[in-house]
């Protein structure tokens, strides 16, 4: 717990001093979403129809964009090496990293989601579904992105490798999340999709931090 707090505080200080790390993915998200209405033209119905997919694809790309930096600096500067040598507090460190990356890359997406709904012509019910799926789905995005970042840590040009490795894993999430929003915009019940998302999240929460830990150790050793 002490380690978790220390690593979390450290991460927030870094984010406060390197604003590009979390502002860039957010700007990317906004710009991608702005491009769609412009590209599709004056077809509000079509836009509202494809909106769930667009929002989710933009969200997972922007999380991926912020993922590469996650362990990079600590690896280059030898912080990871020291933590691995001391062994004990590693899991708390990994969890602190993942939680702070969710707060910095995914939480802003949730906060601006009303704006996005307005932009893409979604009604309130669909927006609520977007919000709920993002709430359940983005932690999963961050967990998997952290895994990718840990696996590709010592690879040169790890960014594209990270994307190739992790994007396929996002497919189930994408399917269920956009299905939920679709259902919501038709006025149907989508609690089934939310339950599946929750189950995926629980599974990832239990397994991914351990896998990240192992991957970090392999990269350092």
């Amino acid at each position: 717990m002490v380690m978790f707090k220390a690593a979390f505080v450290r991460e927030w200080r870094l984010l406060a001093r390197q604003k590009a790390d979390w502002l860039n993915p957010l700007m990317f998200f906004l710009i991608v979403l702005t491009l769609f209405p412009l590209g599709i033209g004056a077809k509000p119905n079509l836009l509202a129809e494809i909106a769930p997919g667009i929002i989710w694809i933009a969200a997972l790309l922007s999380v991926l964009l912020g993922a590469e930096r996650l362990f990079k600096d600590d690896f280059r500067q030898g912080v990871l090496e020291q933590l691995v040598a001391a062994e004990e507090p590693m899991l708390a460190y990994v969890l602190a990293k993942i939680v702070s990356s969710w707060c910095s890359t995914a939480l802003p997406l949730l906060l601006i989601s009303p704006l996005i709904a307005l932009l893409l012509g979604l009604d309130t019910a669909a927006w609520l579904a977007v919000l709920l799926t993002l709430l359940l789905g983005t932690p999963l995005l961050n967990l998997l992105a952290a895994l990718g970042a840990a696996l590709t840590l010592s690879a040169d040009k790890g960014g594209i490798l990270l994307a190739l490795l992790i994007l396929p894993l996002y497919i189930p999430l994408l399917i269920f999340a956009s299905a939920a929003v679709d259902q919501a915009s038709l006025g149907l019940d989508y609690s089934g999709q939310l339950a599946v998302l929750s189950a995926m999240l629980c599974l990832a929460l239990a397994l991914v931090p351990l896998a990240v830990l192992k991957a970090l150790k392999l990269n350092v050793g």
């Binding site: 002490v2 380690m3 220390a6 505080v9 450290r10 030898g78 912080v79 020291q82 460190y93």
Partner: peptide, 20 residues
């Protein structure tokens, strides 16, 4: 490798090490 994060201050490093 020094384990120094360029954006953090000396005191913040010490604080982190003590906890970690």
């Amino acid at each position: 490798l020094s384990g120094i994060q360029p954006q953090l201050t000396a005191l913040e490093h010490l604080e982190f090490w003590q906890a970690a």
